[in-house]
Design a protein around this nucleic acid. Sequence first.
DNA 1: CGCCATAGGGTATACGTATACGCATAATAT
DNA 2: ATATTATGCGTATACGTATACCCTATGGCG
Lengths: 344, 344
Amino acid sequence: MGRQPSAKPTSFDIAYLAGVSQPTVSRALRGSKSVSAATRANIQRIAQELNYTVDKNASSLRSQRTHTLALLFFEDPNPDESMINPFFLSMLGSITRECARRGYDLLISFQQMHNDWHVTYQDSHRSDGIILLGYGDYQLYLTKLEHLVEMGTKFVRWGSVSEDGIGLTVGSDNVGAGEQAGAHLVEVGRRRIAFLGDASDHAPEFQDRYDGLCRAMRAAGVEPDPALQRDAVSSEDSGYAAATSLIESGRSFDAVFAASDLIAIGAMRALAEAGLRLPQDVAIVGFDDIPAASQTTPTLTTVMQDMKGAGTLLVDALLARIDGRPVEQRVLPARLIKRQSTAV
Amino acid sequence: MGRQPSAKPTSFDIAYLAGVSQPTVSRALRGSKSVSAATRANIQRIAQELNYTVDKNASSLRSQRTHTLALLFFEDPNPDESMINPFFLSMLGSITRECARRGYDLLISFQQMHNDWHVTYQDSHRSDGIILLGYGDYQLYLTKLEHLVEMGTKFVRWGSVSEDGIGLTVGSDNVGAGEQAGAHLVEVGRRRIAFLGDASDHAPEFQDRYDGLCRAMRAAGVEPDPALQRDAVSSEDSGYAAATSLIESGRSFDAVFAASDLIAIGAMRALAEAGLRLPQDVAIVGFDDIPAASQTTPTLTTVMQDMKGAGTLLVDALLARIDGRPVEQRVLPARLIKRQSTAV
DNA sequence: CGCCATAGGGTATACGTATACGCATAATAT
DNA sequence: ATATTATGCGTATACGTATACCCTATGGCG
């Protein structure tokens, strides 16, 4: 039946073959400088030959470092439970790669917002640090964050960088992105610009985007009309509802800035059903540049965030915090992608 | 400065408080029947109170079981490296949840097809088993699979269930899905149906879909024309190229069955640019039901796979194999979603 | 030529858990 | 009544690594 799957070699096996003691093997492989170059090279060669890999469990047990990061998705308790926010998904790749590059494993965990705190607690024991991604009710979220801080857990989260300061935050330049979107809409001649997305402190990121929009409008000498803002969470249905409410209010508007692409897509449906022509009657800008944004009719102008940079930065920041190195909040640039929905 | 983050309690702490020995705590918590109900209840209560969690590293080290599954994405070495196949992403949620339900952790790892074997090898040491997801060159893939089998690694993969039998496979009923698509196209009056997607043994899943299509056509008394098949991998560009080649061949066709939605979307662009009306001149069916499929013009008829069931089944099958339980290959039903691109 | 610093590496041990044994007590069989 | 077995638990130990500490040769220095 072929050979045995040859029992996993240990550092003792290597040590024996190299004619040294086990600790020397450990030192050599971990890069301690108190082992001679020749010995180290020899040990590395033998390890390579035997396909030796350090036993993560033993190593972690001894050193009390897991070399693992946990990635927690906080989800809205929405009915469509199998759907994951496409935006976060596209960050996953870069986070994974960055972890691999740094020699860290990545543990994935999904969590309903309302869930037992217990799971998160466990995750904090299984990893050196936690990356938090999540839309949703920000207040609920905060209590969990405070709990984490209290426990001394290292973590970093994706979100609005401007606010409070619970823990370490990495995020896009939402204000700047909002400004870009606003400036572009003004440039194509729009003056009455509506905003769809929570502007309350339940959703700091959306709020930042709205602030940016207002800033751009004022810079162009246009005063934003608060009556043209409608709350919405990141889903098509919510966007549809918000746009419908806007239309039914009877107030005139010639552009819509949606706080996310999903909202924008729902809004486009509502606008089209109301007989409004896009972009002639109403120009529209979304946020996120999800794949569907280039498939809508008309194709959707939107803001693309630097997801690759985001993953790298999140991991970087978290590792810095874990190692006790100083780390400053950082903001990532975002870029406006112009498509048909704002074409003059 | 508040209290210390109170050192993590160990089984010894619990044992002391319960007035028993450490092994008894271990036995009680793991459900050994050689501990009395009263003692067990008491231990569990104390553990709960202290927020005790078993140290995974120590536990794994001792028992040689990691209680972790590794998820490996094999990617095409394509230029757009930050993009992950949206189809696999939607499976991630259900896999994660199923793992959590069974008390397993999930380790994520992306790999370029051409990468060093080393990474996969390591992953096989860090987990009890591996879940393999990947499109791409099937031959390259096979050599890696054989390597895994040789090492005695437990794994399960997503793919075409019909073929060879290297390892354990879970997949959709691609033949049946192809039949549904074909029957639908025939039903709306199409006779000259093109197929875009590799039909070689480099891509067994696509081949199955093609086989299903042919079967449905023959069942309706229509002989499929091999000249209407064009190779394509799962990307928009590839779909665009394949459709263009088809159009330029001058052969007449009144329908296209694309092996994936991305191919379909690329093909739609090519067809529209060639002045063909969809669906009047050419009806089109895709595969996967990615989010963008409902945003195209016209919206895309496609096949929806049971991704939630897929995740569950993959984890189930892998755990069965790990535990040495018997496990049969299983196939998941797929469902045709009818949209505008095939509306009569 | 003796003294000390340094490089290089060995010895002993701890990390927290799970399991093989052994040993009482109590329950049953003979 | 004694022999047998099951029940419930303690004792001892191993899993594979990393680190604190100790020891031995050198070489540099006065």
